[in-house]
């Protein structure tokens, strides 16, 4: 009889886990809390993905199609795990769907519940939700995705835009000390898109460090060298309203010393990633552990990055920390392997 494996979360990581497992003959149940698959990239309608500007539809759409078409994957939409019990190295799990509740026994489990976008409204200094023209990178992704990029305050195209990095990351004040890893690359990518679409709109990036690690560096160079995106060193400490319907960024020019207050038509906050309430939910329901940053904690970050603290439960994707889609997909495959081995060994 085929192995029964549960995958929680239908983002890039969970989708790839599910399809990989089904391809080697397992019976997969994929539980997704939303009414659609694809995770955050789908939910916030990312349009073009770094590093190579592939249309998100081609990547995420393809992952979804593979899962939906696969007979070995049973998808539970708008569902969640309501009851979870270990039973002699197997797991009795109740899956609650809108119109049914089903209890099954699984040989192993993959948790791929992903991340939440940091809500910039939590950090009052950035005046998010106070001024219409202060948005964040997920809002901008969505606006670009909907082909509707204008100043929210007046519907006009902006003449200059400031990106502010490290919003909700690397800041004790908001409780997040870690680097969210993708926001630098997302910001330079968006600055390029902006300059491509609106050559008359200047783009500035306020940074403390630019962490476009590995080959993502190409986008950073491209933004400067081909699109004249200007980087300015200094973190913005305050956003206030300015003359002529502008928003003012107050910061320090740390290269020349001294404060500045520059008005912009629009400000884009590079808000980071958080473990979100779903990580705590997995801790409560499945008996997992959180790390000091609020993400799910692997048994050993180096030797066993996909194993959780509980035997038979595995972790994949952004639920264990900020990462890119490619990493999440790689982890989905790796966790699938771990979960399959566990299931086969304990039959």
């Amino acid at each position: 009889m085929a192995e029964n494996i549960l995958v929680v979360g239908g983002g890039p990581a969970g989708l790839h886990s599910a399809v990989t497992l089904a391809d080697i003959g397992a019976n997969v149940s994929l539980v997704e809390r939303d009414s659609f698959l694809g995770g955050n990239p789908k939910k916030f309608k990312y349009k073009f993905l770094f590093p190579d500007m592939q249309p998100a539809d081609d990547v995420i759409g393809e992952l979804i199609k593979r899962a939906e078409k696969n007979d070995g994957v049973k998808i539970y939409y708008s569902s969640n795990v309501s009851n979870f019990k270990e039973n002699e190295k197997k797991f009795d799990v109740t899956i609650k769907s809108p119109d049914a509740s089903e209890t099954k026994t699984f040989d192993s489990v993959i948790v791929a519940t992903g991340f939440e976008h940091f809500d910039p409204a939590r950090d009052a200094k950035y005046s998010y939700q106070l001024f219409d023209d202060v948005i964040d990178i997920k809002d901008l992704e969505r606006m670009m995705g909907e082909n509707n990029f204008v100043r929210p305050s007046n519907g006009q195209p902006p003449k200059n835009v400031a990106f502010i990095l490290c919003v909700g990351s690397r800041d004790r004040h908001v409780g997040n000390q870690y680097c969210s890893r993708v926001c630098c690359t997302v910001s330079v990518k968006q600055a390029i898109e902006l300059r491509e679409r609106f050559p008359d709109c200047d783009a500035y990036i306020f940074y403390m460090d630019i962490r476009t690690y590995g080959f993502f560096e190409d986008l950073y160079w491209k933004a400067m060298e081909e699109h004249d995106v200007q980087i300015v060193k200094g973190r913005i400490a305050e956003i206030t309203s300015g003359p002529n319907n502008t928003v003012i960024c107050k910061g320090e020019d740390t290269l020349l010393r001294g404060p500045f207050e520059i008005p912009f038509d629009m400000v884009v906050l590079a808000s980071g990633m958080e473990g979100g309430p779903q990580s705590s939910e997995m801790v409560d329901k499945l008996g997992l552990e959180l790390n000091e940053h609020g993400f799910l904690k692997p048994q050993n970050v180096t030797l066993a990055p996909f194993k959780s603290n509980r035997k038979g439960i595995f972790l994949a994707g952004a639920c264990t920390g900020p990462k890119a889609i490619s990493d999440s997909i790689v982890e989905g495959g790796a966790a699938a392997m771990d979960a399959y081995i566990y299931a086969v060994k304990n039959k």
Partner: peptide
Amino acid sequence: FSRVNPKFDRSFF
């Protein structure tokens, strides 16, 4: 005076 710089001057750039 307010320290608001009128703008970064990209025309110069």
